[in-house]
Design a protein around this nucleic acid. Structure first.
Length: 151
DNA sequence: GCCAACGTTGGC
DNA sequence: GCCAACGTTGGC
């Protein structure tokens, strides 16, 4: 799951109660569907920092809630307001994410260089989706990289 | 700031 | 339903 650290970083989440944050602001249907339809409490998450000087995985996290409506869609003054969403028929859903560990930053370049991650969706050319599925093997490989000395 | 690769919008 | 125009993402 991608987040811009200037908006919400791993450190920001660790400073929150329970180190937990609602994953607000997703406004892409496929990303929403992943949260709404495929994520379950306990699912493991790679917390990725994007649009920053050093993009890459910065922490490990897990899903700690089922999907529920993203409140920011109802805030008419906020940047995530959606005039077509209503309380009765919310358009955007989110899950709560708990950061379980801050890791050393595993850079995008480092992940691209690892042969076992060649098929990882987030690394594919043209991928812009802020939430993408990760296989158990890919997850384990990235966790392994977090434990290595910095490249 | 550039630009590839999308996703969305809206006229028809 | 088509598709051109436009907006966004995100690495570089």
């Amino acid at each position: 799951m991608k987040s811009e650290p200037s908006e919400v970083s791993v450190d920001d989440v660790l400073a929150m109660p329970e180190a937990t944050v609602p994953w607000f602001g997703v406004r892409n249907y496929l990303a929403r569907n992943y949260m709404r339809d495929r994520m379950k409490v306990g699912d493991l998450v790679l917390f990725y920092h994007s649009s920053c000087p050093e993009p890459g995985v910065a922490g490990l996290a897990k899903v700690v809630s089922k999907a529920y409506p993203d409140d920011t869609q109802f805030d008419s003054k906020g940047k995530y307001f959606d005039p077509k969403a209503t309380r009765e028929e919310p358009r955007w859903m989110l899950v709560d994410i708990k950061v379980t560990k801050k890791t050393r930053l595993v850079s995008l370049a480092e992940m691209r260089a690892h042969p076992d991650l060649a098929s990882m969706i987030v690394l594919q050319k043209g991928n812009r989706l802020s939430i993408t599925p990760v296989t158990p093997d890919e997850y384990a490989t990235v966790v392994g990289l977090t434990k290595k000395a910095a490249a």
